[in-house]
Nucleic acid binder design. Structure first.
Lengths: 226, 226
DNA sequence: GTATCATTCAAACGTTTGTTTGAATTCTGC
DNA sequence: GCAGAATTCAAACAAACGTTTGAATGATAC
């Protein structure tokens, strides 16, 4: 057993090396496509050290997510707390809400030096991997943030039915996920891609806002706000 | 060897049973998470019959995709051919282009009886699985359709820079993919989901059109159309 | 009915999988 | 420097992996 599971100071760097190596490998090959030997080889540690430090492959996978998602959602909550305090009881603007929610994710995705980009690629592909144990802890990790931001969107768009907002948030998450993790696929489908990556955020924000504020479909116009 | 690889009449149903079983399993557990024994057990055929009929697990995976994508893209090409013929040289409306491209996919996704929904879930998660051999044949399978539809979008939105259109097409594919394959994830994040699935298409179309026609980001306003 | 093909089957192939073990080593507090 | 805990290490474990084999069964043609 390691001295203390949550104390990063006592464990020199073996655990961290494993996290970094597996983060990249999971993003590249998926959970099942990544073996313990691939991980320990890339991290340059002994094969048994994963089980020693994390207990199992599944537990390691969860820890890879927890490390980043905790920070990501902390930033999101901080952003909405600050914005709502500044607004003093009045509703936020839709663009503010989107910025608070997707901004931290896009910033993390822009960080190619400390693994942020790698993790966001992993996160994108994990949304569509419906493995049981993954979905469970994702729900826990996201619960508070989703509740706060959907409430903020309800207030920001009082004329849009709540069900519509939930759907559009879902669509937006898909668009963002693709924007981050599917760049390779895009390049493959449309030929080469010689564009400035720094332009991603304004491009994406414009697109999301357009979709979020789009006119309601006819079938939804008759629905009452509940 | 089977009598004839492309003659569905001579092979009774073993090959088809394998395709149906593996389609569902690949969607549920991914390529690496699905074993030959899971496939042959679910299809109720002998273990060796996959290699006999398809050659290998990878070749089976490709055939699962080819079977559906060939039909999907055939419909897409038929749709754009018909629309452009009707338009007689004038540019199509953006909503028409989107309908031609995403309509067949959404219809397939609505078919829960013949595996269409299962396949679309599989397709959604496969976009984010960057396995080498998968990306290769996806590019081939999609080449013609993407070329035709991007060209139609260029003509439909002459005031929008081409690079912007390519990006927005990418965003839209992400939104659609999530809309189809990520419903479980959405239900998990936002609580239960008591909504009419038939409303998906109008909801999604409204969102996509809003995003596609959104005002350009400031940073792109200065860019010239190339 | 016999020859010829396609297909199915049970069994085994050699690898690779995640995990465990117990001894060797390194670190920590005194 | 010594006791005791934490960590690393090489080796092994049973189980599962994709694929191959050769004989048994099925269907088709003459």
């Amino acid at each position: 057993m390691p001295q203390a599971a949550d104390d990063n100071r006592s464990a020199p760097d073996t655990a961290e090396r494993i996290l970094d190596a597996s983060e990249w490998l999971f993003a590249e090959h998926g959970f099942d496509g990544t073996s313990m030997r691939m991980i320990t080889t890339r991290a340059a540690v002994n094969l048994a050290s994963v089980n020693y430090h994390f207990g199992s492959k599944e537990a390691l996978f969860q820890e890879v997510f927890h490390r980043r998602l905790a920070e990501l959602n902390r930033q999101r909550l901080e952003a909405i707390n600050r914005m709502e305090a500044d607004a003093g009881g009045t509703a936020l603007k839709p663009s503010q809400v989107l910025d608070g929610f997707f901004g931290p994710a896009l910033e993390m995705a822009a960080d190619t030096e400390h693994g942020g980009y790698t993790f966001m690629r992993l996160l994108g592909r994990t949304y569509t991997e419906p493995a049981e144990f993954i979905r469970k802890f994702m729900a826990v990790e996201y619960a508070e943030v989703v509740e706060r931001y959907t409430a903020a969107l309800y207030a920001a768009l009082p004329e849009v039915p709540k069900a519509e907002i939930v759907w559009r948030l879902h669509f937006m998450m898909g668009a963002v996920s693709y924007a981050i993790s599917g760049i390779d696929a895009l390049a493959l489908l449309t030929g080469h891609f010689d564009d400035d990556p720094a332009l991603l955020k304004p491009r994406l924000t414009a697109f999301l806002l357009g979709g979020l504020r789009a006119p309601l479909p006819e079938s939804a116009n008759t629905a009452t706000r509940k």
